[in-house]
Simulated scan of single mutants.
Amino acid sequence: MSTINIKAAVIAGTVAGVASGLVKLGWENILPPRTPARNQTNPPQRLLEQFGVPAKVTHATYTYSDTRLPWVSYLIHFGFSTTFGALYSVAGHYLPVLRLGQGTLFGLGVWGAFHLGIMPAMGTVPNAKQQPVEEHVSEALGHMAWMWTNHVISDAVYRQLTKGE
């Protein structure tokens, strides 16, 4: 195994996480995972409220083009995406099995762990059997597209940062 440039891998994964976070948001505009009623308090907002953050903070918005947008939800969304982008970028150098399917299988695993296991167990989202099939389809495919984007972009950025090493 060649030497891994950890700093370059973290930077590459973070850059990829921002781009893939945008991809995931776009995906959810095409295939919304939740009904409007269930999205009144989305999972990031609910999670923060479970930790005691007041609704006036979790539901804080900014307005762009006459549209109110949930900036606190976006902080959580992009924090999750950049964290997993960096984790995938670094860990994939040490555990190549994570890179099977160009990240799509890893993305599917993240979806299963969080949307079928951790978040239902915490009461953040309903039990997996109580979630509509549309939510499962959107989230499973969206996580695969999200992590594939992380894979492609982090690889390209890592190569650029380390060329000549």
Rank of each mutant, 00 (worst) to 15 (best):
E49R: 01
Q45C: 00
V125L: 06
G21F: 03
I30A: 14
A140S: 13
T58I: 01
P36G: 07
V157Q: 10
R68E: 15
A140H: 07
P44K: 00
H115M: 13
P33L: 06
K129H: 10
G123K: 02
L75K: 02
W27A: 07
G112L: 13
V57S: 02
R46W: 00
A55C: 08
T14L: 02
S65F: 06
T3K: 15
Q45S: 07
G107L: 12
V57D: 04
Y74P: 01
P54N: 09
P120G: 06
R38K: 14
N29M: 15
L108A: 14
P70A: 08
T63R: 07
P33C: 03
N5Q: 04
V133K: 12
I76R: 00
R68D: 14
S154A: 10
R159H: 05
T162M: 03
M122W: 08
G123Y: 04
A91H: 12
E165S: 15
M147W: 15
T67F: 03
P44W: 00
A16D: 04
Y158F: 12
H143D: 05
L100C: 14
G85W: 02
T149Y: 06
L108F: 10
H59V: 00
A8P: 03
F51G: 00
M119T: 00
G117I: 07
T3L: 13
I153T: 05
A113R: 06
S154G: 12
Q45R: 04
R34C: 02
F84P: 04
H151V: 08
V10F: 07
A113Y: 12
G17K: 07
G26C: 14
L105V: 13
H115N: 11
V133Y: 09
W111C: 09
Q50G: 02
M1P: 04
L161A: 15
G13W: 05
T82M: 07
E134K: 13
Y94D: 10
A156D: 11
H77N: 01
F114C: 01
H93F: 14
L87H: 02
Q40R: 14
G142F: 05
Q45F: 01
Q50L: 01
I11V: 15
L98Y: 12
M122I: 06
E28S: 12
T14W: 01
T162F: 05
S20P: 03
G21N: 01
A55R: 11
E139F: 11
R99C: 10
I4Q: 03
H93W: 05
R99Y: 12
F78S: 00
G21W: 02
A86V: 02
T3Q: 14
S138R: 11
E28I: 09
G103M: 06
K7T: 13
M1I: 04
H143K: 01
M147I: 08
Y62D: 02
Y158T: 09
S89R: 03
V23W: 07
D155A: 11
A16G: 11
G117A: 07
P126G: 10
S2K: 15
Y158S: 09
Y158C: 08
N29E: 15
S138I: 12
I6K: 12
T41F: 10
